[in-house]
Amino acid sequence: MSLRRRERLTGWVFALPSLITLGAVIAVPLGFSLSVSFFAYTFINPSFSVFLGFENYMNAFSDPYFWNSLWVTLKFVVLVVSIEFTLGFIVALMLNRDIRFKGVYYTILTMPMVMSPVAVGLIWKMLLHPDLGVLNYFLGLIGIEPINWLGDPTMAFWSVLMVDVWQQISFMILLLLAGLVSLPKEPFEAATIDGASEFQKLFYITIPLMKPVILAAVVIRTIFAFRTYDLIYVLTRGGPGVSTDVLSYFIYRKTFMGLNLAEAAATSYVLLGVVLLLVVFMFKIITSERKVVG
């Protein structure tokens, strides 16, 4: 056996345990749910006896609630990611200068990120309570009528959005800040000598240099935003009506309330497809970026 082959074998031996584990916890369930999505597999009759082909997918597509959920999800994802990015970038820029109490700000920023979404949901549910919530209490002090934060179909969507931004924006800020901190300082000094204003430096240097970091941050947050589930579960259970019924919650309902495992599996794969498409699209943008010379 040549050295090269022996080395390769050793590599496989070392990789095997983790490959087996990954296979067991990822590939097996994925494969299982994929096959489920093609059969009449329910909790009442959990068997692969009746092959349906794409019927489960057709059923999902013809369900108006599915389209509602897809629309709510897209709206939610696009809005949270753009709000978090815009606000996050501004905050990151503010923190990326010589200011006092940086440590304090970092600590405050990290707190929401390390909290469990369920806990965050419960806390906000209390804060947003129409009668007992502290938010309406303060609004009352300045003479504003109490708002039904989670009970009103339009308001509920925005409330969930706000809570999600509150919790997830730290991630965006920290990621962008890490990028800003590692930018070389000489291009900025060269631009300063040339008389560029702070805004011109932002547009001509910071943003172009930050592009890879920005795209990475946006991609990661997009993927996570598609999977938002626990917050919805705690705050609104998809309601009122179906106004906050994001796809992941819709799938949960189909599975555990509708007990229609097969159609839920089909919907999951549609969600996966949507996310993949978006991510592939974003990665295309990243990789078509010219290599940045440091």
Binding site: P187, A191, T192, I193, R290
Partner: peptide
């Protein structure tokens, strides 16, 4: 301030604008 000093500067690691 630097931009009003009438100086030009060249840095060790080029400091060109990559974009």
């Amino acid at each position: 301030p630097p931009e009003k000093r009438d100086v030009g500067m060249v840095f060790q690691n080029y400091a060109l604008f990559p974009n």
